[in-house]
Computed example of a mutant assay.
Amino acid sequence: MQWCGLNYNINGIRFSYGYGSGGTFIIPLSTHSSPHHDSSKTSDTTSHSHFGTSKSSHNGRSLTYNCPIRSGGVDYRQFNPCNDGLKINTITSLAFQTKGNNDAHILLQNNANDFDNKVVEMVIGGWSNTKSVIRNQQQGPPLCSYEGNILSGSSFRWFWVSWSSGCVKVGKGSTVGGSQIMQWCGLNYNINGIRFSYGYGSGGTFIIPLSTHSSSHHSSSHHDTSKSSKTSGTSEHSHSSSTKSRKYVTIDCDSLNFVYQVCNVPGAKSINNVRLKEQRSKSECKLNSSFGFDGNHIWVNKGCRGRFNVCYNS
């Protein structure tokens, strides 16, 4: 088709389906679309047509995987978080968000390219969202299970998985170790890969954090992440007293629109602790739930806005 009557500039574009049909658009973001674009930045959102799905990396802080509705089994090959920046061999746990009606699947792998040998499969909300299981092969017999409806097709929910000391654990919520629902202690190999998928009549979305200092020394300050996480502008008030390399600073950090936000601590190599000095939001600011720290930054979530005293090592 062609029409040659355009006599004005184009400054916007929108997409939709209708009239009894839904559908998916996959829209490339050209690396030449902006004179200020730096193609070396990992924070750019990317899209691709592989398996008819889309993937987005938000500001280098999290991965978003949109899994299409599958009438049959899962497809673990459609995404590879390790290729997208998740350093799986430096961590032993992971908290993530997911939204879907049923059958969220996670596969831990000894070999990132082997989907059948030395794997641990976790099903969250299987069997029409009535049962969750851990098994040591795809579609294998359950090694442990949990009964209950835990997924939601209308809102994101937090879950975590961990693998250490021979045990694989699964729990609800954003704090690793809290609200555990399943455990299997037969793991006798290293985990070097992880995959995500939906299946059996359900599609869904995973939001997976990219930790800035992933390590097996996981602390209770493990933070929530979400699909819009980014470094915010901070208001630094330096109450800078120091003991050797330990320093103190006051920083403003706001979770606007209930979105996860990271606030860097200038000059910090690591953070020892963070305390709420002043809450400026109606939403509660609660340590390890709606604010905390990780590596050399603090984070806020769930609408928490406040001023924080930070003790850090420079």
Rank of each mutant, 00 (worst) to 15 (best):
residue 3 W to A: 14
residue 3 W to E: 15
residue 8 Y to H: 12
residue 8 Y to Q: 13
residue 11 N to H: 10
residue 13 I to H: 10
residue 14 R to F: 14
residue 25 F to Q: 06
residue 32 H to P: 08
residue 33 S to Y: 12
residue 34 S to Q: 07
residue 34 S to M: 02
residue 34 S to Y: 04
residue 37 H to P: 11
residue 38 D to K: 00
residue 40 S to R: 02
residue 43 S to H: 11
residue 44 D to I: 13
residue 45 T to A: 13
residue 47 S to W: 13
residue 50 H to I: 13
residue 54 S to I: 14
residue 55 K to L: 15
residue 55 K to C: 14
residue 56 S to N: 15
residue 57 S to D: 13
residue 58 H to D: 15
residue 58 H to I: 15
residue 65 Y to I: 01
residue 71 S to K: 08
residue 74 V to R: 05
residue 75 D to H: 07
residue 81 P to H: 00
residue 83 N to A: 10
residue 87 K to V: 13
residue 87 K to Y: 11
residue 88 I to S: 04
residue 89 N to F: 07
residue 97 Q to V: 02
residue 109 Q to G: 01
residue 110 N to S: 06
residue 116 D to W: 09
residue 119 V to M: 00
residue 121 E to P: 03
residue 125 G to N: 08
residue 126 G to C: 01
residue 126 G to E: 01
residue 127 W to K: 03
residue 127 W to M: 07
residue 129 N to W: 02
residue 134 I to K: 00
residue 137 Q to T: 10
residue 138 Q to H: 05
residue 140 G to S: 07
residue 142 P to H: 02
residue 142 P to N: 01
residue 143 L to I: 05
residue 146 Y to A: 06
residue 146 Y to F: 03
residue 157 R to A: 09
residue 158 W to L: 14
residue 159 F to H: 01
residue 160 W to K: 00
residue 160 W to T: 04
residue 161 V to A: 03
residue 162 S to E: 03
residue 164 S to E: 06
residue 165 S to Q: 06
residue 172 K to H: 08
residue 174 S to D: 14
residue 174 S to G: 10
residue 175 T to W: 12
residue 177 G to C: 00
residue 179 S to F: 14
residue 181 I to G: 04
residue 182 M to L: 07
residue 183 Q to S: 04
residue 196 F to W: 00
residue 197 S to F: 08
residue 197 S to E: 12
residue 200 Y to F: 03
residue 201 G to I: 07
residue 202 S to P: 13
residue 209 P to G: 01
residue 210 L to M: 07
residue 211 S to K: 05
residue 214 S to A: 09
residue 216 S to G: 10
residue 217 H to Q: 14
residue 217 H to L: 12
residue 219 S to D: 11
residue 220 S to E: 11
residue 221 S to F: 10
residue 224 D to S: 13
residue 224 D to G: 09
residue 225 T to F: 07
residue 226 S to N: 02
residue 226 S to P: 02
residue 230 K to S: 12
residue 236 E to R: 08
residue 236 E to H: 10
residue 239 H to N: 15
residue 242 S to G: 14
residue 246 R to M: 12
residue 247 K to P: 15
residue 249 V to H: 03
residue 249 V to Q: 09
residue 253 C to S: 07
residue 255 S to T: 01
residue 255 S to G: 02
residue 257 N to D: 12
residue 261 Q to C: 10
residue 265 V to G: 07
residue 266 P to R: 02
residue 275 R to C: 12
residue 277 K to H: 05
residue 278 E to Y: 15
residue 282 K to I: 13
residue 288 N to T: 09
residue 296 N to V: 08
residue 296 N to T: 10
residue 297 H to F: 09
residue 297 H to R: 06
residue 300 V to T: 05
residue 304 C to H: 05
residue 308 F to T: 09
